[in-house]
Amino acid sequence: MRLSVRNVSWSAGSTRILRDVSLDVAQGEFLGIIGPNGSGKTSLLALLSGIRRPQIGEILLDGAPLAGFGRRTVARCIALVEQQAETTEHITARQAVELGRTPYLDALSPWSAVDATIVDAALQAVDMAHLADRFWHTLSGGERQRVHVARALAQEPKILLLDEPTNHLDIGHQIALLDLVRQQRLTVVAALHDLNHASMFCDRIAVLRGGTLLTIGAPQNVLTPSLISEVFGVDAVIEDHGAEGCAIRFRPDGAPCRPHRAT
Protein backbone atom coordinates (compact mmCIF):
# COMPACT_ATOMS: atom_id res chain seq x y z
CA MET A 1 0.00 0.00 0.00
CA ARG A 2 1.41 3.36 -1.10
CA LEU A 3 1.31 6.79 0.53
CA SER A 4 1.79 10.01 -1.41
CA VAL A 5 2.14 13.61 -0.31
CA ARG A 6 1.22 16.22 -2.90
CA ASN A 7 2.24 19.86 -2.39
CA VAL A 8 1.22 19.79 1.26
CA SER A 9 1.40 22.83 3.51
CA TRP A 10 0.17 23.06 7.08
CA SER A 11 0.18 25.87 9.66
CA ALA A 12 -0.45 26.10 13.38
CA GLY A 13 -2.07 29.48 13.84
CA SER A 14 0.09 31.98 12.00
CA THR A 15 3.15 29.70 12.04
CA ARG A 16 3.84 27.72 8.89
CA ILE A 17 4.99 24.24 9.94
CA LEU A 18 5.17 22.46 6.57
CA ARG A 19 5.77 24.17 3.22
CA ASP A 20 4.88 22.59 -0.12
CA VAL A 21 6.07 19.08 0.75
CA SER A 22 5.77 16.33 -1.89
CA LEU A 23 7.01 12.75 -1.65
CA ASP A 24 5.99 9.15 -2.38
CA VAL A 25 6.37 6.14 -0.11
CA ALA A 26 6.47 2.85 -2.05
CA GLN A 27 4.75 -0.29 -0.84
CA GLY A 28 7.02 -2.18 1.55
CA GLU A 29 9.49 0.71 1.86
CA PHE A 30 11.06 1.84 5.13
CA LEU A 31 11.29 5.63 4.83
CA GLY A 32 13.09 7.57 7.55
CA ILE A 33 12.38 11.23 8.23
CA ILE A 34 15.18 13.20 9.85
CA GLY A 35 15.68 16.85 10.69
CA PRO A 36 16.28 19.19 13.63
CA ASN A 37 13.67 19.72 16.33
CA GLY A 38 10.85 21.84 14.97
CA SER A 39 11.43 20.83 11.35
CA GLY A 40 7.92 19.40 10.92
CA LYS A 41 8.49 15.64 11.32
CA THR A 42 5.69 15.05 13.85
CA SER A 43 3.28 17.26 11.91
CA LEU A 44 3.95 15.36 8.70
CA LEU A 45 3.24 12.04 10.43
CA ALA A 46 -0.03 13.43 11.82
CA LEU A 47 -1.06 14.37 8.28
CA LEU A 48 -0.07 10.97 6.90
CA SER A 49 -2.16 9.27 9.59
CA GLY A 50 -5.26 11.34 8.87
CA ILE A 51 -5.32 12.85 12.36
CA ARG A 52 -4.84 16.25 10.71
CA ARG A 53 -5.73 17.42 7.23
CA PRO A 54 -3.47 19.58 5.10
CA GLN A 55 -4.62 23.14 4.51
CA ILE A 56 -3.02 23.05 1.07
CA GLY A 57 -2.37 19.93 -1.01
CA GLU A 58 -3.47 16.37 -0.24
CA ILE A 59 -2.41 12.98 1.10
CA LEU A 60 -3.12 9.99 -1.15
CA LEU A 61 -3.58 6.37 -0.09
CA ASP A 62 -3.00 4.07 -3.06
CA GLY A 63 -3.73 7.03 -5.32
CA ALA A 64 -7.03 8.05 -3.65
CA PRO A 65 -7.44 11.06 -1.32
CA LEU A 66 -7.01 9.95 2.30
CA ALA A 67 -9.69 12.45 3.33
CA GLY A 68 -12.25 10.41 1.39
CA PHE A 69 -11.85 7.28 3.50
CA GLY A 70 -13.85 6.57 6.66
CA ARG A 71 -12.00 6.54 9.98
CA ARG A 72 -12.46 2.78 10.46
CA THR A 73 -11.07 2.08 7.00
CA VAL A 74 -8.06 4.32 7.63
CA ALA A 75 -7.44 2.65 11.00
CA ARG A 76 -7.35 -0.76 9.31
CA CYS A 77 -4.73 0.51 6.87
CA ILE A 78 -2.58 2.91 8.91
CA ALA A 79 -1.30 2.69 12.49
CA LEU A 80 0.50 5.55 14.23
CA VAL A 81 2.83 5.23 17.20
CA GLU A 82 3.05 8.71 18.67
CA GLN A 83 6.03 10.17 20.47
CA GLN A 84 3.99 10.88 23.60
CA ALA A 85 0.77 8.95 24.18
CA GLU A 86 -0.40 8.50 27.73
CA THR A 87 -3.59 7.43 29.46
CA THR A 88 -5.07 7.98 32.89
CA GLU A 89 -7.20 4.84 32.56
CA HIS A 90 -6.53 2.02 35.02
CA ILE A 91 -5.65 -0.57 32.38
CA THR A 92 -3.09 -3.32 31.97
CA ALA A 93 -0.50 -3.61 29.22
CA ARG A 94 -2.62 -6.29 27.56
CA GLN A 95 -5.72 -4.09 27.63
CA ALA A 96 -3.72 -1.26 26.03
CA VAL A 97 -2.68 -3.57 23.20
CA GLU A 98 -6.25 -4.84 22.82
CA LEU A 99 -7.22 -1.31 21.79
CA GLY A 100 -5.46 -2.04 18.51
CA ARG A 101 -8.30 -4.41 17.61
CA THR A 102 -10.96 -1.66 17.89
CA PRO A 103 -11.25 -1.04 14.10
CA TYR A 104 -12.33 -4.67 13.64
CA LEU A 105 -14.92 -4.87 16.41
CA ASP A 106 -18.63 -4.08 16.23
CA ALA A 107 -21.97 -5.65 17.13
CA LEU A 108 -21.60 -8.19 14.32
CA SER A 109 -17.91 -8.88 15.01
CA PRO A 110 -17.39 -9.10 18.79
CA TRP A 111 -14.12 -10.00 20.48
CA SER A 112 -12.97 -13.47 19.50
CA ALA A 113 -10.20 -15.99 20.06
CA VAL A 114 -8.58 -14.68 16.85
CA ASP A 115 -8.32 -11.21 18.38
CA ALA A 116 -6.77 -12.65 21.54
CA THR A 117 -4.20 -14.58 19.49
CA ILE A 118 -3.23 -11.44 17.55
CA VAL A 119 -2.78 -9.49 20.81
CA ASP A 120 -0.68 -12.28 22.33
CA ALA A 121 1.57 -12.34 19.23
CA ALA A 122 2.02 -8.55 19.33
CA LEU A 123 3.03 -8.62 23.01
CA GLN A 124 5.45 -11.44 22.32
CA ALA A 125 6.97 -9.59 19.36
CA VAL A 126 7.97 -6.59 21.49
CA ASP A 127 9.12 -8.71 24.46
CA MET A 128 6.26 -7.61 26.72
CA ALA A 129 4.32 -10.85 27.14
CA HIS A 130 5.78 -11.37 30.62
CA LEU A 131 4.46 -7.94 31.68
CA ALA A 132 1.07 -8.23 29.99
CA ASP A 133 -0.88 -8.12 33.26
CA ARG A 134 1.05 -5.20 34.75
CA PHE A 135 -0.90 -1.97 35.11
CA TRP A 136 0.04 0.84 32.76
CA HIS A 137 1.07 3.29 35.47
CA THR A 138 3.63 0.79 36.84
CA LEU A 139 5.49 0.43 33.52
CA SER A 140 8.68 2.31 32.71
CA GLY A 141 8.85 4.74 29.80
CA GLY A 142 10.59 2.15 27.62
CA GLU A 143 8.05 -0.54 28.50
CA ARG A 144 5.20 1.80 27.64
CA GLN A 145 6.82 2.57 24.30
CA ARG A 146 7.00 -1.14 23.48
CA VAL A 147 3.34 -1.54 24.43
CA HIS A 148 2.46 1.27 22.01
CA VAL A 149 4.25 -0.56 19.22
CA ALA A 150 2.47 -3.80 20.17
CA ARG A 151 -0.87 -1.99 20.01
CA ALA A 152 0.01 -0.78 16.51
CA LEU A 153 1.00 -4.30 15.41
CA ALA A 154 -2.26 -5.68 16.82
CA GLN A 155 -4.03 -3.22 14.53
CA GLU A 156 -2.67 -5.26 11.58
CA PRO A 157 -1.99 -2.19 9.44
CA LYS A 158 -0.53 -2.11 5.96
CA ILE A 159 1.30 1.13 6.83
CA LEU A 160 3.08 1.83 10.12
CA LEU A 161 3.94 5.40 11.14
CA LEU A 162 6.45 5.86 13.97
CA ASP A 163 7.31 9.12 15.71
CA GLU A 164 10.65 8.70 17.50
CA PRO A 165 9.89 5.05 18.31
CA THR A 166 13.13 4.44 20.23
CA ASN A 167 12.53 7.16 22.82
CA HIS A 168 13.08 5.85 26.36
CA LEU A 169 14.51 2.52 25.11
CA ASP A 170 17.95 1.21 25.96
CA ILE A 171 20.27 0.50 23.02
CA GLY A 172 19.44 -3.21 22.90
CA HIS A 173 15.72 -2.58 22.67
CA GLN A 174 16.25 0.27 20.18
CA ILE A 175 17.98 -2.02 17.71
CA ALA A 176 15.61 -4.92 18.37
CA LEU A 177 12.53 -2.76 17.89
CA LEU A 178 13.65 -1.24 14.60
CA ASP A 179 14.74 -4.65 13.34
CA LEU A 180 11.35 -6.06 14.33
CA VAL A 181 9.58 -3.28 12.43
CA ARG A 182 11.70 -3.90 9.34
CA GLN A 183 10.86 -7.60 9.42
CA GLN A 184 7.09 -6.98 9.36
CA ARG A 185 7.09 -6.34 5.59
CA LEU A 186 4.97 -3.25 6.12
CA THR A 187 5.23 0.16 4.54
CA VAL A 188 6.98 2.15 7.27
CA VAL A 189 7.53 5.87 7.77
CA ALA A 190 9.56 6.70 10.87
CA ALA A 191 10.76 10.01 12.29
CA LEU A 192 14.21 9.28 13.72
CA HIS A 193 16.75 11.31 15.69
CA ASP A 194 19.59 8.80 15.49
CA LEU A 195 21.25 9.12 12.08
CA ASN A 196 23.04 5.80 12.51
CA HIS A 197 19.68 4.09 13.03
CA ALA A 198 18.41 5.80 9.88
CA SER A 199 21.39 4.48 7.96
CA MET A 200 21.01 0.94 9.31
CA PHE A 201 17.29 0.41 8.80
CA CYS A 202 15.92 2.81 6.17
CA ASP A 203 15.65 2.21 2.44
CA ARG A 204 15.47 5.96 1.89
CA ILE A 205 15.76 9.04 4.07
CA ALA A 206 13.83 12.31 3.75
CA VAL A 207 15.39 15.41 5.29
CA LEU A 208 13.16 18.18 6.64
CA ARG A 209 14.43 21.61 7.60
CA GLY A 210 12.18 24.50 8.53
CA GLY A 211 9.14 22.62 7.23
CA THR A 212 10.65 22.14 3.78
CA LEU A 213 11.72 18.85 2.22
CA LEU A 214 15.41 19.46 1.60
CA THR A 215 16.27 16.14 -0.05
CA ILE A 216 15.25 12.48 -0.21
CA GLY A 217 17.25 9.44 -1.26
CA ALA A 218 19.25 6.39 -0.25
CA PRO A 219 21.11 6.73 3.09
CA GLN A 220 24.56 6.72 1.47
CA ASN A 221 23.52 9.58 -0.81
CA VAL A 222 21.76 11.66 1.85
CA LEU A 223 23.94 11.22 4.93
CA THR A 224 26.99 13.15 3.80
CA PRO A 225 29.27 15.32 5.93
CA SER A 226 28.15 18.43 4.05
CA LEU A 227 24.43 17.77 4.57
CA ILE A 228 24.87 16.87 8.25
CA SER A 229 26.82 20.09 8.76
CA GLU A 230 24.25 22.17 6.87
CA VAL A 231 21.16 20.70 8.59
CA PHE A 232 22.39 19.86 12.09
CA GLY A 233 25.35 22.22 12.45
CA VAL A 234 27.86 19.52 13.42
CA ASP A 235 30.91 18.05 11.74
CA ALA A 236 30.84 14.33 11.01
CA VAL A 237 32.99 11.57 9.58
CA ILE A 238 31.18 8.92 7.50
CA GLU A 239 32.42 5.33 7.34
CA ASP A 240 30.85 3.46 4.42
CA HIS A 241 30.00 -0.15 5.34
CA GLY A 242 28.44 -1.08 2.00
CA ALA A 243 25.19 -3.05 2.24
CA GLU A 244 25.18 -2.60 6.04
CA GLY A 245 24.90 1.17 5.65
CA CYS A 246 27.31 3.71 7.05
CA ALA A 247 28.60 4.64 10.49
CA ILE A 248 28.56 8.29 11.49
CA ARG A 249 30.94 9.75 14.03
CA PHE A 250 30.47 13.31 15.21
CA ARG A 251 33.18 15.83 16.00
CA PRO A 252 32.54 18.51 18.64
CA ASP A 253 33.41 22.02 17.42
CA GLY A 254 35.26 20.70 14.42
CA ALA A 255 37.79 18.73 16.48
CA PRO A 256 39.40 15.80 14.67
CA CYS A 257 38.04 12.35 15.44
CA ARG A 258 40.41 10.34 17.60
CA PRO A 259 41.20 6.81 16.44
CA HIS A 260 39.63 4.02 18.43
CA ARG A 261 42.07 2.28 20.72
CA ALA A 262 41.59 -1.29 21.76
CA THR A 263 41.83 -1.99 25.47
Rank of each mutant, 00 (worst) to 15 (best):
M1Y: 07
S4P: 00
N7D: 15
S9W: 08
S9N: 08
L18W: 02
L23Y: 12
A26C: 09
L31D: 06
I34T: 07
P36K: 06
G38P: 01
S39N: 10
L45P: 03
S49A: 05
G50I: 06
G50S: 09
Q55Y: 03
G63Q: 07
L66H: 01
C77I: 15
I78V: 09
L80A: 01
Q84R: 13
E86W: 12
L99R: 15
G100K: 01
T102P: 00
L105K: 04
D106S: 05
A107V: 04
V114I: 15
A122C: 02
H137R: 13
G141L: 05
V149C: 06
A152N: 01
Q155P: 02
P157G: 08
P165N: 09
P165S: 11
N167P: 01
N167D: 07
L169W: 12
D170P: 01
I175S: 10
L177K: 02
L180Q: 08
R182I: 06
R182G: 02
Q183L: 09
H193M: 05
L195Q: 10
M200Q: 14
G210L: 03
L213G: 08
L214M: 14
L214P: 00
N221C: 12
V222R: 11
P225F: 08
R251F: 06
P259H: 14
R261P: 01
R261W: 15
